[in-house]
């Protein structure tokens, strides 16, 4: 039953799914109407999985998909239930940080399973890896399946990742890229959340890692400020590589900042010699490949293309 991998770096890789396995859907953060998860449920079913919606999917308490107790209980049950083989978060928003210290990981540590999500779920990804060395999946959530998008390569990458197919993503280069090759454990997620957990028990160590970041809807100066926090807290200096995802819907102040987000980041990492790529398809837009936090990857940043390959 228990087929956990322990790789050389001692990351615990939860068992990959087989056809017929069961995926639970929970909403540990913001509210999501049930119908918005309908296409996702149908698609997962078409892929050959069983789907169990949790009590928080479609449930609402103000902004949230339930009270802290309800959200915590739903996620806890899904983590502990041996009949659930993986957990897909319906959506992000805000709320994981409110319940994370209430979760009990005792059973989950013995029987880890893939937890899938991004954005606010970054808190859980970081927490699982930094505390228990358990890998988790940064990937599209339920709403990304809508409007016919369930067929796109990014949603397909989630299926491949769940089934244990090793990723090999190729994407075009960017003029700001810093070429080079690197191998290392991949960590990262949403920039706001990565800085929000600094100094907390969910804080993630980035030394010798490949770090990826993405962001949505922030002011450029605010992204610059968060990048300075990463830099000043020592999280950028000893990386193996840096993957800059998409920074969607960036806002500027009345007096312009004077740089794009990418230019500001480039300035900030100028002293580092490791490979850096910009505009990698990890984001709040549809371009969002499944990435396994805690797993070894090889990144090649070449003149005209970028390849991220799971080892």
């Amino acid at each position: 039953m228990l087929v956990c991998f322990i790789n050389l770096d001692m990351t615990i890789i939860p068992p990959y799914l087989k056809l017929g396995d069961t995926i639970g859907i929970v909403c540990p953060a913001g509210y999501m109407p049930f119908e918005k998860a309908q296409t996702c449920i149908e698609t997962l079913t078409d892929w050959g999985f069983k789907v169990v919606p949790g009590e928080t999917l479609g449930h609402q308490f103000h902004y949230f998909s339930g009270t802290d107790e309800e959200r915590c209980r739903d996620l806890q049950r899904m983590m502990d239930d041996r009949n659930i083989d993986a957990i897909l978060c319906g959506r992000g928003g805000y709320g994981m940080g409110r319940i994370i210290d209430k979760l009990d990981f005792t059973k989950f540590k013995k029987h880890p399973k893939w937890i899938v999500g991004f954005s606010d779920i970054t808190v859980l990804h970081s927490h699982l890896f930094s505390n228990f060395k358990i890998a988790s999946m940064h990937a599209p959530m339920a709403a990304a399946f809508n409007d016919g998008e369930y067929k796109n390569q990014y949603i397909q990458s989630l299926r491949d990742a769940l089934l244990g197919k090793r990723a090999d993503y190729k994407t075009e280069g960017n003029i700001l890229d810093q070429p080079g090759n690197a191998k290392g454990i991949l960590v990262g997620g949403n920039l706001s959340l990565l800085v929000n957990v600094i100094g907390t028990p969910s804080d993630i160590k980035t030394k010798n890692k490949i770090l990826f970041i993405e962001e949505i809807g922030e002011y450029i100066y605010s992204v610059d400020r968060m990048m300075y926090q990463l830099k000043r807290s020592g999280k950028l200096e000893n990386l193996k590589a840096l993957i800059i995802g998409r920074f969607s819907d960036m806002k500027d102040t009345t007096v312009p900042f004077g740089q794009t987000v990418e230019e500001a980041i480039k300035d900030l990492v100028r002293d580092y010699v490791y490979p850096i790529c910009f505009g990698f398809p990890v984001s709040h837009d549809k371009e969002n490949y499944a990435l396994k936090v805690g797993v070894n990857y090889e990144l090649k940043v070449k003149k005209d293309f970028v390849e991220l390959k799971e080892k």
Binding site: Y63, Y94, V195, G199, R225, Q229, R232, S233, K235
Partner: peptide
Amino acid sequence: IQMLDGSVSDLDTEGKILFIEDVGEYAY
């Protein structure tokens, strides 16, 4: 204060009286 977390300017609040204020941020 949050932005200084983990940096060399990180604020130590132990045994102190802390005051905080903010402007223009969402409640969440």
